[in-house]
Amino acid sequence: MNFKRLIIGALILILSVTLLIGCGKGSDKVVNNTKSTANKKKVVGVMMADISAQFQAHMADAMKAEAKKYENEIEFVFVDGKFDSNIQLAQAENFISQKVDAIIFIPGDKEGSKPIVDRIVQAGIPLIGVNTKVAEMEKLTTYVGSDTVKSGEILMQAIADMLGGKGNIVEIQGWYGHEPQIERHKGIQNVLSKYPNIKVLAENTGKWTRAEGMAVMENWLKSDLKDKINAVVAHNDEMAIGALKAIEDAGMLDKIIVGGIDAEPEALNLLKQGKLKVTVFQDAIGQGKAAIECAVKAVKGEKLEKEYMIPYELVKQQYADQYLARYEIK
């Protein structure tokens, strides 16, 4: 009887040790999984409207430089929407399926942004709008940008002053339907309403590009408008530079004022030379850095203001070098 009890006791002891070892292994797995989750980087998707646009290229450079400060904890994934809402919708859905922790979004089209914003918001992902407004701003977590209407007003007022309040202008607009095109045109119209002696002879889209801006200007210079144009009002510097090239080729640089928006480095150099007469500074570096800062705060669950606005600035020829220095990313 004692021998049987000894055998039973030994079996119980072996079984107890086995269970303890099994529980120990399970505990190790839980600890390891927790450690793995804690060390996993957060991910932020960055949806650019079109990285080939010079202003956005500068902004992307600033974003990437700022993102390096957080490379040990957050991964930033950049994608190019090529000004196509369908491409951007697919990119948004891809980020949603990957369960990213936040998304930075520059829409290629204001109306086309609606389903993109809805999908991201429905997925519960913080959404930081940058540079270009979406159709339903209230759905954004926050917005980083500038007052686009103001940029049109600043540009048109400067040109109106150069014209002495009278003359004929042509307007080269951005992509029709794109938020900056709508807002800058509105700002230009706001100023023109005060100057009945300034006439708009023609307007067309230059699709934000230098080549298209040049083509539009060449067509006007081949028409009966050639000797009537006193100034070109372009929605961005790229189109202004294209128009400037067409005017220079036609030998009319001393007869037509050209102005643009963004104060990109090449435009600033042309301003120094006296070829471009005016530009309006939009802070690409400031917007890019602020977008990353907001995304980091969103990922960390920190409070954000509803918007962060960076003012536009009129650039005069004598200050061109000071604005060129602002493109140095620190």
Rank of each mutant, 00 (worst) to 15 (best):
4 K>Q: 09
5 R>S: 09
5 R>D: 10
5 R>P: 00
7 I>E: 11
9 G>C: 08
9 G>D: 08
15 L>R: 07
15 L>G: 11
23 C>P: 00
25 K>L: 15
29 K>P: 05
40 K>H: 14
40 K>M: 15
48 M>H: 04
55 F>L: 02
56 Q>D: 06
66 E>T: 02
70 Y>R: 04
71 E>H: 14
75 E>P: 04
76 F>A: 06
85 S>D: 13
85 S>L: 08
88 Q>E: 15
97 S>H: 08
99 K>A: 12
107 P>D: 13
132 T>Y: 07
132 T>W: 00
134 V>W: 04
140 L>M: 10
143 Y>N: 05
146 S>Y: 07
150 K>G: 03
152 G>W: 06
152 G>K: 06
155 L>P: 06
158 A>Q: 03
161 D>V: 02
166 K>I: 04
175 W>G: 12
178 H>V: 13
182 I>S: 08
188 I>Y: 08
202 A>Q: 10
204 N>K: 10
209 T>H: 01
210 R>Q: 11
213 G>M: 11
214 M>R: 14
216 V>M: 10
222 K>F: 06
227 D>K: 06
227 D>T: 05
233 V>G: 01
234 A>M: 05
238 E>I: 02
238 E>R: 02
241 I>D: 00
242 G>I: 02
250 A>F: 12
253 L>A: 14
260 G>K: 10
261 I>D: 08
263 A>F: 01
268 L>N: 03
272 K>M: 03
283 D>S: 14
284 A>K: 01
290 A>C: 09
294 C>S: 08
302 E>Y: 07
303 K>T: 12
303 K>F: 03
307 E>G: 06
311 P>K: 13
323 Y>M: 03
324 L>A: 07
326 R>H: 04
